[in-house]
Every structure is written in C-alpha cells, then in structure tokens.
Amino acid sequence: MTIRHHPHELHLARLASGLLDPALALVVQAHIDRCPGCEADIEVLTATGGVLLEDLPPAQLGDEALARALARIDTPEMAQPPLPPMRRHRIAGGIWYRPLYHGRDGARAYELNVPAGRQMPEHRHSGQEWVCVLHGSFVDRTGHYAEGDFVECGEELEHGPRADPDQDCLCLIASTGPMRMRRLIPRAFQLFLQL
C-alpha cells in the first residue's frame, strides 16, 4: 500500500500543538495511523511541543491551586460508564454513515460507506471537508484516492465521488459546515444534509 496524498506541514503542526479542530484532527490522525512518515513527523512535533511548553511564561493560577489539586488526588476517579456503540444510519442505495463526533462549534466527523461502483450526488461544502480513505478507493474530478490517502475538499470544489467498482469505499470524513447538493435532492439525502 502506497499512500500518495498527505496532510501538509501546517496541518501536522496544528494537530501536534492542539490547535486543529477536533473533528479535523480525527481525520489527520486516521491518516497518521496508516502513514509511518507522517507519524514520525507528529512524534517530533509533539516532542517539540513539550520543549516549547517548558519555555512558556507561567500563568497566574487561582488561589490555593496546589492545595485544591492535593485535595482532589485523594478523591477516587469516577468510573466512566461504557459508551453505547454509535449506530449506522442507512441513507439510500447501500450508502450508510456512522456519526463519530459532534463539536460545540458544529463541526462533525463521521464514517461514510459507499458501495462498490456507486456515486455520491454532486455536492459542495460550506466549510472545510477533510477525508481519509479507511478502506477501498474512490475517484472524483480531482483524482484517485486509495486507502490511507488524505484529501482536503475546499469550499470551491463541487464533486460527486464514485467508489471504485471492485469494493466498497469506507471513508472517515470531517466537515465544518453542511453539504450542499447541486440538484434535486433525493429525500433520503435531505436527512443526510443534517450532517
């Protein structure tokens, strides 16, 4: 497997430093999990974050901050209840999505599965849309993308990605604004617009 499309350096630096929107961060992380080169970049950038942390001027803490922390370390940690698994939502024609993340600012991350050979309706995005191919491959007017590839779709891009005919294509997608369909919208896709 050769990954040909990588997130650029500023995205990596923003991920390492904690500046990247968490929905977008999930997509970059999915790429890094499959790309040893970018993983090594993140490792060194994170270590650089540690070095720079030491160099930051100390902020004024609230009154008795250490005393409060020492009081809290004796309190046993609340066990987190196990999270229910996220449900798949069927859209139409074998296409399904599974929501993974919903940010306070409206950004979302979700998995989207498109059956082999099927095409998504032509659409645009009203914000950033970042994609990492988790399985299979797809093609749109900008190129061909396979497992591990990172794809950034800007607001100006109108596309109707089509899964390659040999297998389903599963992608992790983050968007900071809703999708905008070009043509008459199938009713099932109206629900999808809520993404």
Binding site: D21, T46, G49, L53, E54, Y101, H102, R104
Partner: peptide, 18 residues
Amino acid sequence: STWIFTIARNLRLDSARS
C-alpha cells in the same frame, strides 16, 4: 514535559466535544 503536554492537549481536544 512532552508527556504532560500530550495530556493537556488531549484534554483540550476532549473539552471541545458537545
């Protein structure tokens, strides 16, 4: 410092979840 930085960064990411 790298370990503590990583913890702080992850907590910040978590705090943005709705």
